[in-house]
């Protein structure tokens, strides 16, 4: 039997164009055997959630370096709730000050990965969360 493949959406909400981290993570997840849907820059929360629905992903990975995470991450979570798809695991990465993390966890972002993260930690995290 083919068995289940973990499907991950890697998205960059907001306007910042720094996609080195997003692309490196996308590749690392692919190399860990996952199917990664990469949608590129300047995604609105609405686009991200609609894509997650159509692609039936298990995980959404959001990357922001501009500081707009405090606004955009909760917006994504809100839309997931509206669409009754809160079962999707959401993780975030980028330049995210530690003091913002509790607030982001509270709205349902399960993992926050800041610069210097080993991609194996992200892979492990996803595998544990998606069973």
């Amino acid at each position: 039997m083919e068995g289940k493949k973990i499907r991950v959406l890697i998205a960059k909400p907001g306007l910042d164009g720094h996609d080195r981290g997003a692309k490196v993570v996308a590749r690392a997840l692919r190399d860990a055997g996952m199917e990664v849907i990469y949608t590129g820059l300047r995604q609105t929360p609405e686009q991200i959630v609609e894509t997650a629905i159509q692609e039936d992903v298990d995980v959404i990975g959001l990357s922001i370096l501009s500081g707009a995470h405090t606004h955009l991450f909760p917006k994504v979570m809100e839309l997931l709730k509206e669409n009754n798809i809160e079962d999707i695991v959401v993780i975030g990465g980028g330049v995210i000050p530690e003091e913002d993390i509790p607030e982001l966890k509270k709205v349902g972002i399960e993992g926050i990965f800041t610069p210097g993260t080993d991609t194996h930690d992200i892979i492990k995290f996803i595998r544990e969360k998606v069973k």
């Binding site: 692919r30 860990a32 055997g33 996952m34 990664v36 990469y38 949608t39 300047r42």
Partner: peptide, 14 residues
């Protein structure tokens, strides 16, 4: 090699 895939066609269809 890895069984994974990077699917990027959506970029063009945003």
């Amino acid at each position: 090699f890895t069984g994974g895939a990077l699917l990027g066609d959506r970029i063009r269809m945003q």
